[in-house]
Amino acid sequence: MIQFLRSLLDRVYQFLFPQQYFAWQTMMYLGIFSLIMSWIARLSGATAVTEWLIATGSWTFFSIGVGWFLEHNQVRPFGIALAPWVSGALVCTYVFSLIPGSHLSVALITWPLISVAIVAVPQFLSWDFSLKQPAPPIRQQLVLLLLVALLISSWFQFYFRLQRWLGDYPTLLSEDFSRSGFVTRLSDYSDDQARGIALLTFAENQIKEQLNDMPWSWTERWLLNRPDQIARIQNNALALLSESQEQRMWQLTAPPPRGSDSGGYVLRVLAIWLGPAANPEGFYLEKSCQIRPRTQPSTQTSPDSPPAPPTVMTTVNCELGIPKKPGRPEA
């Protein structure tokens, strides 16, 4: 037991305190030391430049130390040298945390290139900072590495381009990507993300505002003049889509209303998606509203005057659900 503890202690000691000073541990200690010093500098109220200088030193030491450790212990999963990539990631994290604002995309895109630069610079510079030419096999290796890094960087860039498309056309998120040859979706999707829902809800409110508690004759005239009214509503609704580029992608229509049993009409308002969709025929969203006449009991102003004819008012009730239907609506 004691023997085991002693050997363990020995190993820990050797891990922490190497035989020579030219080792990765030295770099890590320098990094920790600079980190503590930068905190002391901050607490003692040194100028920002001093603090920045010391903190930069600590990040540099950490980057070199981690890279050295990985290279020294031959950490190579699948034969890939990890050291430059980890060092590159550390450098990127530091550099882009200095610049205010979110730079995740730029950081990820430049990360492979910085990693290659970390590999390449020692091949072109000798210890006394004079330029040297690497041997031909190393040159070929560097070219290959640079191309692989550029490819990975392009993939990251493609990922961010994809996000920009989905930001420009958020309705696409409500669609099924399983037939795509390029992308995979990790989370579930639902119809809720279609922006046409907001459009139809807006239209519903506008119709209610314009027709509810209005005389029935007014409503019938409105329904006769339906295309113009819907076009006006769509114009007003365009502001809802202003943060995306979907304004030209939605078309609001209302087919001729059907008569219902209660003497009123069923008005269907459709938002037709004109953009790309999983179904080659596209899709549309439908909101149906019931517009009914309602007889208002005439108010008797005075007992001796003859009763006024009852006024017929309008009530608008819309379905809550907004079903999504494939294809184009029948004309």
């Binding site: 994809l162 696409l172 669609e175 037939r179 040859g181 390029f182 790309p276 080659p280």
Partner: peptide
């Protein structure tokens, strides 16, 4: 990646359609 932002919007949505859904759409 360089010329994609320069596409006219209709062509751009066709490219998006092919990448996301595997087919082109009517436009």
């Amino acid at each position: 990646l360089g010329i994609e932002p320069l596409f006219p919007p209709d062509l751009r949505t066709q490219v998006i359609s092919y990448i996301l859904f595997g087919h082109f759409y009517r436009n």
